[in-house]
Computed example of a mutant assay.
Amino acid sequence: MSVTPLELAKVAATAANEKKVEDLVLIDVSGSSDICDYFLICTAANNRLADSVIDEIEEKVGINCAEKPISIEGREDKTWILMDYGAVLINVFLPEQRDYYRLDKLWGDAPCVALDLD
C-alpha cells in the first residue's frame, strides 16, 4: 500500500484529533523546505496525553498507511515529541513549549492545509 505524504498527514491529524489535542495545524512546507513536505503540529494538555497521542498516531498510521515512523524523539521528557515519517514531521507539544518554539509562526508563510475535522 502506498500513500501520499498528505494522506499520511491527514490520518495522523485524525488520530491526534481523536485524542482531543488543541491547536491542530497541518502546514504544507513542500515549497520552502528540503527537510519534509508537511509539518503536523498540535498541543497536548499534559505529559500523559502527549504520550497517548503518539501511541494513537503510530497505531492509526500503521494500520491505515502501513508506515512506521523513522524515529520518535523527545518521548522521555514528553514536552515536545517529534515523530519523523520522512515527508511528514509530527510535533506534539505541551502548551509552554508550543508557545516558546512557535513553529507555526516560523513557517507562517507556508500554506495551512484544511483538515475538516469535527
Rank of each mutant, 00 (worst) to 15 (best):
E7Q: 12
M1E: 12
A16P: 01
L40R: 03
L117Y: 11
K78W: 01
E56Q: 15
A12I: 02
D51M: 12
C36W: 01
L40S: 04
D51W: 07
W80K: 04
L103C: 10
W80G: 07
V61C: 14
F39K: 03
I35L: 08
D104V: 10
I35H: 07
S33N: 00
T4Y: 06
E7S: 05
Y38M: 06
G86C: 06
R48S: 13
D84C: 04
L8T: 12
K78V: 02
T79V: 06
G62F: 02
E76R: 09
S52R: 01
N46E: 11
D23E: 08
N91D: 12
C42E: 08
E7W: 02
D104R: 08
S30I: 01
E73C: 14
I27A: 06
F93T: 02
S2A: 04
A50F: 13
A66S: 14
S52P: 05
A12E: 06
K68L: 02
N64T: 01
V29C: 02
V53M: 14
D37Y: 06
E96K: 13
I81F: 07
L89M: 15
I72L: 10
A110I: 10
S30Q: 05
A13T: 00
L89I: 13
I35M: 09
L117K: 11
P111V: 07
A16R: 02
S30N: 14
E7H: 02
V61Y: 14
L24E: 07
Y38H: 03
V88P: 09
D99C: 09
I27Y: 09
S2Q: 09
L117Q: 10
L49M: 14
V88I: 09
A44E: 04
L89E: 00
D28T: 04
E59L: 13
E59G: 07
E56F: 11
V53Q: 15
C112Y: 02
D23T: 00
I72W: 13
V11H: 13
E22S: 13
V53P: 13
D23W: 01
K19C: 11
K68W: 02
E59I: 06
I90D: 12
I72P: 14
V88L: 12
E58H: 15
E73I: 09
L6A: 06
L24M: 06
E56M: 14
W107T: 00
F39Q: 07
S32V: 11
I41D: 04
E76M: 08
K20D: 06
D118C: 12
I54K: 15
